[in-house]
């Protein structure tokens, strides 16, 4: 960094042009400050907000007209729900922290949705049903829980996040929420809930990740 070359004598004695320059720079500084302010909200979003993980080929697109949530497998009364029927089931609102296995957390996430337990009562699991697999719309990602784990009170099929319908990035139209395990246990873009007698390993568990991804917390 250095001095700019000294201006020739004629220019250096021209206060009007210097004032003009300084006003332009002042406006420039203002614009820069505004840009910085806008940027900082983006940066805070990066620090505290959601991050995205997906292995689907692009984010699956949810079509309200054709979407079905299928609940089948070892059940007495299999179900196929369209989006409105899913939303008309008895709903709960739940506030829970979301923990990703990567280490980040979104505190106090407000979910609206249907308890897994309510859904299980509707379809009536057969005695052999001991595990549940949750399938994504894209056909690549799935994960599973034992029926006992899935029946824990915090486990939801959620369709609203913080009061608004799930966005495509966050897993529209529905995702599994299992607040006591890391986020990879909760598939986004949920389209099928399958009751099984044996545990079907999820996408990451087939690749060596932990099946029971309990969160260790003193809180």
């Amino acid at each position: 960094m250095s001095d700019e070359p000294r201006p020739p004598p004629g220019e250096s004695g021209a206060p009007r042009s210097r004032r003009l320059l300084s006003r332009a720079r002042f406006l420039g500084l203002l614009a820069g400050g505004a840009a910085l302010g806008a940027l900082s909200t983006r940066v805070f979003g990066l620090v505290d907000g959601w991050r995205e993980n997906t292995v689907e080929d692009g984010r699956p697109v949810f079509d309200r007209a054709t979407y079905r949530l299928t609940v089948d497998g070892l059940v007495a009364r299999p179900l196929s729900l369209d989006y409105d029927s899913l939303r008309s089931l008895p709903a709960v609102r739940q506030v829970s922290d979301f923990h990703c296995v990567e280490g980040w957390r979104v505190p106090n996430v407000r979910w609206d949705g249907v308890r897994f337990q309510s859904l299980a009562e509707l379809v009536g699991p057969l005695p052999d049903a001991r595990y549940v697999t949750f399938h994504s719309l894209g056909g690549v990602y799935r994960d599973s829980l034992s029926l006992t784990q899935a029946r824990l009170p915090g486990v939801l099929i959620a369709y609203d996040l913080d009061g608004a319908p799930l966005s495509r990035v966050r897993g529209a139209p529905a995702r599994l929420v299992m607040p006591r395990m890391f986020g990879y246990k909760g598939p986004k873009w949920l389209t099928r809930v399958e009751f099984r007698d044996r545990q079907d390993l999820g996408y990451w568990e087939q690749r060596g990740w932990r099946v029971d991804a309990w969160i260790r917390s003193s809180g």
């Binding site: 990066l46 620090v47 280490g103 980040w104 957390r105 969160i215 260790r216 917390s217 003193s218 809180g219």
Partner: peptide, 13 residues
């Protein structure tokens, strides 16, 4: 603890 990790992750970011 998972909440400690989250706080540390945040500062790392």
């Amino acid at each position: 603890d998972v909440d400690l990790v989250a706080a540390v992750f945040r500062w790392h970011t």
